[in-house]
Design a protein around this nucleic acid. Structure first.
Length: 949
RNA sequence: GCCAGAGUGGCGGAAUGGCAGACGCGCUGGAUUCAAAAUCCAGUGCCCGCAAGGGCGUGUGGGUUCAAGUCCCUCCUCUGGUACCA
């Protein structure tokens, strides 16, 4: 009995496509043919195999590709593997087996599973980031980064040889020049704090540290600075943000990236602290209040001299030792700065600490250093901090302001120091309340509601606030604040310093600047500070430079050599491995366990255990030690889409002509979990390659779509622990690959999160069974056409159904609304199942529109309908719009907006005839008697609505 | 906290401001069958009603409109992201 048996027809067609190289893509799109580059985010080949979440995006892109081929496009649709990664390394540590062995096994499983689903990839372009011939070029790109500096004037990455060397550096000789260059490269070394667990002998990721202990084994973890490779992505922050504009990405993802980059515009301002250490002691600073901008003298000669000098010299690029430089987005609140805070890591901490405060400050800094970032950044905890004992002078009103150390100020952002304006910043307010620091309002919020102030009065009234005891010298002016009372208006509370308001308003308590609205004030004071040499406009980014090295084995080795002196000690000079020497392969190791501490007592990566012949090459008589860090997993995925264009090229990473022809990627589909990092890193590399002339487009991913996660049948995230993981192998075995593909698309919108449902798979399988029976005689002994399939012309109604279906499926695919496209095809099937005569030409066309979704059954039916070749390149069926229109349509008739009847009228009836038809309807006529019609709304083709009295 | 997205039958979900619930699952009834499976046909938001028909209905409360799931405001819930970025 020729029933629909996917288990036999699916492998049959996969073999056919393979044998005929149906989806082999030409090197270059032929002249006159439009190209389409459609890319899936390539998977990490985990040991657990493909997950039903993977085929969601893959099926969507496959439909787009198959549709595009049938519409005459030349399609590039490749697949590969992001194969470096921690799980393989952990497996290697446990078993002693080389991670490559395990990785290759997993890739085989993934490949089998992907092929089983009938995706139209050009498998000849298959690659893995762990292939020697692939990471050779990853290393090569790293060397491009290493060879590039960012010219801020031209806003462009340029060769390091073009970096202007200041005369004073040049005069210090060759070594100084090289160090100067190294400081300016996009790939540079820097000390970064790592989580080092001496017990485990390894460096841990932030997620692996809990409460200062290692997640595994609960061993103590210390934070220590380690020489790390960094990539200067911050140089490209502006371009990475601005270029988002031209991309066809969802606004949500663009915003996510933009927020991650976190550009803010404000001002840098220098607060004078004096030269000696520490200078402005309590009581020593008592400058007379003056109006900023007037050249009145204070009674602090040191300060006066500094200010005068600044007026002449202007604002220096680098702050001197005599000032604390702060960054603020609210220079208009300078007059409300009642204290300052510097980060515990700030280099001035020791200098600014008075002898009386020394013990407290040192203890605080020590405690902060031992805490993980995670613990420090817990916003729910109470603010902590300690007074240094020193004061700085507010440059605008010459008031002394106490300098505190607190970990709510981050060393990594801005200048690591802030002016605190508790009246207009929630964090500063909280801190001021905690330590009894004064709150001076400088922005009049005007008439506001209580939701705009912090804390909301209700919050204060419910929790009794107690003023903690503070060091006696902590409060230059003793103004303790009582909780908000119910009587005070929100505005009054702000003006009294009892609440904080972060919005914009009109300035007060700001001497000559009173009465300005926030935006004007910002502009004015920034300009005035610039003139006085006390500040300038500044831009800051939340984005940090990319920590690019890992102390792991299973990653790309850095193609970098550290020069050694005669005694075998590093000279501090580095050089790149020659391009012709690439790739630098991973060395043989006896085991993959962490290397523990190196000879210097610092954490050593596994590659430090490499044999000497690998580790210590000699070039031109000079001895070197190889870099032993490896690159992070992100590296390989930063450029794989370029290699797919020219995967076998052993001269270049990609041929320029091919790159120009295929880029950019027209559609990129993947999970939203990569919305920030992968896409940002990738775009960054691409821009560097663009600046250096290696690629032709500034952006790689023109259109991006994020598929939603597929949950388990119980609505929870799929996981082994929850026991709700669905294995595609099982689904294919029980229902077939076409059913799996169809169901993945039928579940709901591609971008939505949606639960798996076995019953749903059964449903779409039922649909395919019906399609099969529509064409195949399933009662016959042999495979033959259903008797209803005849070589006759379709009836008008059949034709209308066909053309409507083609029209809707076509537009649904173009909008990537696959779920409704499938619904339309189900309607088609339901209609034709009832037809006892089914014109062959109609079924031909239907099979073609079904084929992108369910390619195996479509090929099989296409063959049965008498066609000799694959349908993969058959022209997509066209529709005649005139044939999609019904002759008569049903129009709803409403009275006062409520549906009261329906009338059938000829399509295209004009307003007058619609009204006539509606009024002649018996029920409407009855309801209208005795009523006055105030207004009649007629939407031709849609409805009639009588508004009556 | 903040940002983004989402709340529609028993379930997954459809709906350029114009007939809410397409399509699928499930359920009910029927045909076929000795019987069952499979298949085919019909019905299926809730309430009242024998029916004709009526009322109510897209998280909550308000608003705009002849007309609101859709637009505006308030609040609630869920999901994801993020975490003191001055």
């Amino acid at each position: 009995m020729p029933r629909y048996t996917p288990a036999t027809i699916e492998p049959k067609w996969q073999a056919y496509w393979d044998e005929h190289q149906t989806f082999r893509t030409p090197e270059l799109p032929p002249a006159g043919q439009e190209k389409l580059y459609v890319l899936d985010m390539f998977p990490y080949p985990s040991g657990s195999g493909l997950h039903v979440g993977h085929p969601e995006g893959y099926t969507a892109t496959d439909i787009v590709c198959r549709f595009a081929r049938m519409n005459g496009k030349c399609v590039l649709h490749p697949m590969g593997f992001d194969a470096f990664g921690l799980p393989a390394e952990e497996h290697a540590i446990r078993t002693g087996e080389h991670p490559r062995t395990n990785t290759e096994t997993n890739i085989k499983v993934f490949t089998r599973q992907l092929r089983m689903l009938g995706f139209s990839y050009d498998w000849s372009r298959d690659l893995a980031t762990t292939d020697l011939e692939y990471f050779r070029w990853t290393q090569w790109i790293f060397l491009v980064l290493f060879d590039t500096w960012y010219d801020a004037d031209q806003q462009k990455g340029r060769p390091i040889s073009e970096l202007p060397i200041p005369a004073e550096v040049r005069s210090q000789g060759e070594a100084a020049v090289r160090k100067y260059q190294d400081e300016h490269r996009l790939a540079y070394q820097s000390d970064a704090l790592v989580n080092w667990c001496p017990e485990l002998g390894t460096v841990l990721a932030n997620e692996e540290v809990i409460d200062g202990k290692s997640e595994r084994g609960s061993h103590p973890v210390v934070r220590l600075p380690l020489r790390q490779w960094m990539l200067r992505i911050t140089a490209y922050a502006d371009r990475l943000e601005k270029d988002l504009e031209g991309l066809d990405w969802s606004p949500g993802i663009k915003k996510l990236q933009s927020d991650w980059i976190g550009r803010s515009v404000g001002a840098e301002v220098d607060f004078f602290v004096g030269q000696s250490s520490p200078t402005l002691r309590v009581g020593q600073a008592s400058p007379a209040k003056v109006e900023f901008g007037k050249s009145a003298e204070t009674n602090n000669p040191e300060f006066d001299a500094w200010k005068a000098a600044r007026a002449k010299s202007g604002f220096p690029k680098k702050p001197g030792e005599d000032v604390l430089r702060i960054y603020t987005t609210r220079p208009d609140t300078l007059f409300g700065a009642t204290y300052m805070v510097i980060a515990p890591e700030h280099p001035f901490v020791a200098r600014l600490t008075t002898p009386e405060q020394k013990t407290a400050v040192e203890a605080y800094v020590q405690a902060a250093a031992s805490k993980s970032d995670r613990d420090r950044q817990d916003v729910n905890k109470k603010k902590t901090g300690v007074f240094t004992g020193s004061y700085a002078i507010n440059p605008v009103n010459h008031e002394p302001v106490p300098v505190w150390v607190a970990d709510y100020v981050l060393w990594g952002y801005g200048t690591g120091a802030i002016m605190a304006v508790p009246a207009h910043d929630e964090r500063d307010f909280e801190f001021a309340q905690q330590f009894g620091l004064p709150v001076v309002a400088v922005v009049d919020p005007g008439d506001i509601s209580e939701v705009e102030v912090y804390p909301k009065p209700s919050q204060v009234l419910s929790t009794q606030y107690s003023v903690p005891s503070t060091p006696e010298n902590a409060t230059p002016t003793t103004t303790h604040h009582s909780p908000l009372t119910t009587h005070a208006s929100p505005r009054q509370s702000v003006l009294n310093g009892q609440a904080c308001f972060v919005g914009e308003g009109v300035s007060i308590n700001s001497n000559g600047y009173n009465g300005l609205v926030t935006s004007d004030f910002k502009r004015r004071i920034t300009a005035d500070l610039t003139t006085a040499g006390l500040g300038r406009e500044a831009v800051n980014y939340k984005l940090r430079d990319w920590l690019f090295s890992r102390q792991r084995f299973w990653g790309e080795p850095f193609p970098i050599l550290h020069e050694l002196d005669a005694a075998g000690n590093p000279t501090g000079l580095i050089r790149a491995v020659d391009e012709q020497e690439l790739p630098v392969d991973l060395p043989h190791l006896d085991d993959y366990k962490p290397a523990g501490a190196g000879p210097d007592g610092l954490p050593a990566p596994p590659l430090a255990k490499a044999p000497a012949e690998w580790l210590y090459p000699t070039i031109d008589g000079k001895k070197y030690r190889r870099e032993t860090n490896t690159m992070p997993q992100w590296a390989g995925s930063c450029w794989y889409f370029l290699r797919f264009i020219d995967p076998k090229n052993n001269q270049r990473f990609v041929d320029p002509a091919k790159e120009r022809a295929w880029m950019p990627i027209d559609l990129y589909v993947g999970g939203a979990e990569h919305a920030v990092l992968h896409l940002l890193y990738s775009r960054f590399w691409h821009k560097v390659l663009f600046d250096r002339g290696h690629v032709s487009k500034p952006e790689p991913f023109q259109k991006l779509v994020n598929q939603g996660m597929i949950l388990g049948e119980n609505g929870e995230k799929m996981s082994k622990a929850r026991g709700n993981v669905v294995n595609p192998d099982d689904v294919v075995r029980d229902y077939g690959a076409d059913s799996l593909r169809l169901f993945e698309m039928f579940m709901g919108p591609l971008e939505a999160v949606k639960p798996w449902s076995t019953a749903g798979v059964v449903g779409v399988r039922g649909f395919l069974d019906r399609v099969w029976r529509l064409i195949v005689d399933d009662k016959a002994e042999a495979l033959k056409l259903n008797e209803s399939v005849q070589n006759v012309a379709p009836t008008d109604e059949q034709n209308r159904t066909l053309h409507k279906t083609i029209k809707q499926v076509t537009s649904d695919i173009q909008r990537m609304e696959f779920n409704t496209a499938i619904a339309r095809m189900m309607e088609f099937t339901n209609f034709f199942t009832k037809e006892t005569v089914r014109p062959r030409e109609v079924l031909d066309k239907f099979v073609l529109i079904l084929s992108p979704f369910a390619p195996h059954i479509a090929e099989e039916l296409w063959q049965l309908l008498g066609h000799k070749q694959t349908l993969a390149y058959e022209p997509w069926p066209t529709y005649d719009d005139a044939l999609t229109k019904d002759a008569e349509i049903e129009i709803p008739v409403q009275i006062l907006g409520k549906l009261r009847s329906k009338v059938v009228v000829p399509a295209g009836s004009d307003q007058a005839s619609l009204i006539a038809a509606a009024r002649s309807d018996a029920r409407i006529a009855e309801l209208l008697t005795g009523k006055e019609i105030v207004k009649t709304i007629v939407v031709p083709g849609k409805l009639v609505n009588f508004v009556v009295k």
